[in-house]
Simulated scan of single mutants.
Amino acid sequence: MYNSKITGMGYFVPDNIVTNDDLSKMMDTNDAWIQERTGIKERRWIKEGSGETSASMGAKAAKIAIERAGLTKDDIDFIVFATLSPDMYFPGCGVQVQDILDMPTIGALDVRNQCSGFIYSLSVADQFIKTGMYKNVLVIGSEFHSGGLDKTTRGRSVSVIFGDGAGAAVLSRTEDNTKGILSSHLHSEGKHARELVVEGPSIAHWVPEILEANDPNDTSYYPYMNGQFVFKNAVVRFSEAIIEGLKANNVEASDIDMLIPHQANLRIAQFIQKKFGLSDDQVYNNIMNYGNTTAASIIIALTEAWEKGKIKDNDLVVLAAFGSGFTWGSVIMRW
């Protein structure tokens, strides 16, 4: 059996920086309120009219990842694209990237697991490689949140959190079973689906109904989050997923060289760091600069940490996420 390892990474974020002070001009909020609750100082939002999309950002990140892997677009065997903000209701962004990058007619799969999307996508790509089906799989996480947020005081508890951006990784076959992805662990609990949700448009709240009602108070197509409930579940599930991964590989928390948590809320990451007794050098956070980029957050952070020399050969790297669904999971890898 083969192993899979990351051979190239890249990310792309829009140039447009939106600070907390900028948001205070749109809604009743302020920098201190946002930082105290989320740790976020600024985020990137796509400028209206720029033409940028989830697919286009994902393609830009993918180009960097493929080049850093020492490959060409023709060497990629399969695409896995994670997003909750696709350019179109269907088809998915994976096929758009295949077209944008002018790749061969390889398969493309979209994963809709929101904040856990990149973890799930890595797991899928890892299994394709471990079974021998593919040699190089392109995994992308990309989000265009800003176009779908309620940027009024009504929506401030959610809208201040999210940012736009994309990251990509090339997962490649290796015969060294001591390196690469050692294990992945995935979970869900659908009974809490409506605690973090966008309900429409959907088959239960479809376009004609929305158009006919034309109700300015209909918030079903804006994100809803029961913040305190999500936070309480997140800190529990994050911990469980990490512990599960460590036990599966017979290692301890002290063996972790780098933990990359999904960038949902800095307070969650700090809670997890303290619980596992990790130093600042063992955890990488960048939510203060980008906000929550959902499926893109882990790969953007992982790429930044690697670029800064914080991840080295043979390091034990742990990725963990929790989000809407509820879904959560972890990936343990030896760099």
Rank of each mutant, 00 (worst) to 15 (best):
Y2G: 01
Y2R: 14
N3W: 09
K5D: 02
F12Q: 09
I34E: 05
I34H: 07
I40C: 08
E48M: 03
G51D: 01
T53R: 04
M57G: 07
G58D: 01
A65E: 00
G70I: 03
T83H: 07
G92L: 08
G94C: 06
V97M: 13
V97W: 00
D99Q: 12
L101K: 12
P104H: 11
T105E: 12
I106E: 07
G107Y: 05
A108V: 04
L109M: 15
R112Q: 13
S116A: 13
G117M: 06
S121N: 03
G132W: 04
E143Y: 10
G147I: 08
G147S: 14
G148C: 05
T152E: 09
R154T: 15
R154W: 04
R156V: 15
I161C: 15
G163D: 12
G180W: 04
S188G: 03
V197N: 01
P201G: 07
A204Y: 10
V207N: 01
L211H: 03
D218V: 04
K232W: 00
A234T: 09
I242M: 06
I242Q: 02
E244I: 02
D257C: 08
I260P: 00
H262V: 08
A264D: 03
F271V: 11
F271T: 13
M288S: 14
T293H: 04
S297I: 07
S297P: 03
I299Y: 00
E304D: 10
E307M: 03
I311L: 01
N314E: 11
V317F: 07
F322S: 05
G325D: 03
T327S: 15
T327Q: 07
